[in-house]
Design a protein around this nucleic acid. Structure first.
Length: 360
RNA sequence: GGAGAGAUGCCAGAGCGGACGAAUGGGGCGGCCUCGAAAGCCGUUGUGGGUUUCGGCUCACCGUGGGUUCGAAUCCCACUCUCUCCGCCA
């Protein structure tokens, strides 16, 4: 959630930023108006409360001095003020609530460095890396076929246990998943504290990363306990510091975690759903850092470099895509997708696509 | 799931309706003493919001949310979390 203060002091800049993201900015003026209203109400409330406090103090004094009549008069006045305070306070709460609701719907501003663009087609392919770029030559068989034939993947059983878009890995496949996660963690042990967080979290925790209220349909929710299954370890890792004030000297704080990630993938039924391309539950290692605004860009690039190094270590061919402003997700300022090649359409030399590992 | 105890500042711990934003001790920071240190002594030490003629003024915060009251850390209700005991436990 954006700091309202920025809207107060730098409205034009925020507007310009959101415009670059292609976001409707009508709401912003309403946000500013609400903020102003909230502060104005707050001031009046503060004054009223100060007066009530003062009166109460005087009542105490008068009582002690044995002047109950005078005290009674002040009490009456204070009572009147108290009623007014209650009304005003209710209005202030209402305004503050509206303000928060609106603010939660305002996306993060894109970074200055993010390339301009309206949508996916404007993303910038920064570079293509990898030992062997003739990936199409030998990737003629899609992974779900290799996986099944080698006994690494059991999609049928996955569907039996949990439904479509759930996977059972078996034998060497299961080991591979484990090894991959371990590799990713071990490579970053030099700078990142390893965390094993819960994967079921409170609503507040989901809100802290901007996943709620906006993406409620995409997350699994356990009604009975009011808990959410995390769509990424980013959620618990970010909330580790929620409501805490970190000492700037400790920054950047670097954390990483391997978790299962759960996504309902609502609205994407039928798209890229073969094999492992889009599944409801998968393993992911997240690396994350809390930084000062000044450290952010450089630290982000370090995260990208680390993710890339992992792909290089695996001997994979990939390309780096600098996501343009129009395609940047809700909470993102800047985003590099690291896309690893995978054959999507069986036995068609034509428009194969890439699948991405992303870094925000 | 049942019964009980508790939650106060960086930590420990008092306060149980009126000068409490909070005693006291420890810790931290500054100073005195000292060749230096320890000990001792003196001082200082929360966060956030609003406003400001930048000296301040003011509000909120004692687990969270409500309520009672002229006035709440203190009383009432609900919830959360921690601890102890019992039960259950794939």
């Amino acid at each position: 959630m954006l700091d309202v203060k920025r809207l107060r002091t730098d409205l034009a800049a925020v507007q310009a930023g959101l415009l670059r993201k292609g976001v409707d900015i009508d709401d912003l003026t309403r946000v500013v108006a609400l903020d102003e209203q909230r502060r104005e109400l707050g001031e009046r409330l503060d004054e009223m409360r100060a007066r009530i406090k003062d009166l109460s103090r005087q009542v105490g004094d008068l009582r002690r001095r044995g002047e109950p009549d005078e005290a009674e008069a002040l009490m009456a006045e204070s009572r009147r003020l108290g009623e007014a305070e209650r009304d005003l306070s209710a209005r202030a709460d209402e305004v503050a609530g509206d303000l928060r609701d609106l603010l939660l719907g305002v996306p993060n501003e894109p970074a200055d460095e993010a390339p301009e663009g309206a949508g996916e087609s404007d993303n910038v392919i920064t570079r293509v890396e990898g030992a062997d770029r003739r990936w199409e030559e030998y990737q003629r068989v899609p992974h779900w076929e290799i996986g099944e034939s080698l006994g690494l993947l059991d999609l049928e059983r996955g569907a039996k246990l949990s439904g479509s878009m759930f996977v059972v890995y078996r034998g060497a496949g299961a080991r591979l998943v484990r090894a991959l996660c371990q590799l990713a963690l071990d490579r970053n042990l030099d700078a990142f504290e390893e965390i094993r967080p819960p994967t079921l979290v409170r609503t507040e925790t989901m809100i802290s990363t901007g996943h709620l209220p906006k993406f409620a349909d995409d997350a699994y929710h356990l009604e009975r306990d009011d808990l959410w299954a995390v769509p990424t370890a980013e959620v618990p890792l970010t909330s580790m510091a929620r409501d805490e004030i970190l000492d700037e000297a400790d920054l950047p704080v670097r954390l990483m975690a391997h978790t299962s990630c759960f996504r309902r993938e609502a609205g994407s039924a039928g798209r890229d759903t073969r094999g492992l391309l889009r599944v409801h539950e998968f393993d992911k290692v997240e690396i994350l850092a809390y930084t000062t605004p000044e450290q952010a860009a450089a630290t982000h690039l370090d995260l990208v470099a680390r993710a890339e190094a992992c792909l290089v270590a695996l001997g994979l061919t990939y390309r780096v895509v600098d996501i343009c402003t129009g395609d940047l997700s809700f909470s993102a300022r800047r985003c590099f997708d690291l896309e690893v090649y995978a054959l999507l359409v069986r036995r068609l030399p034509g428009p194969s696509r890439q699948h991405s590992l992303s870094t925000r």
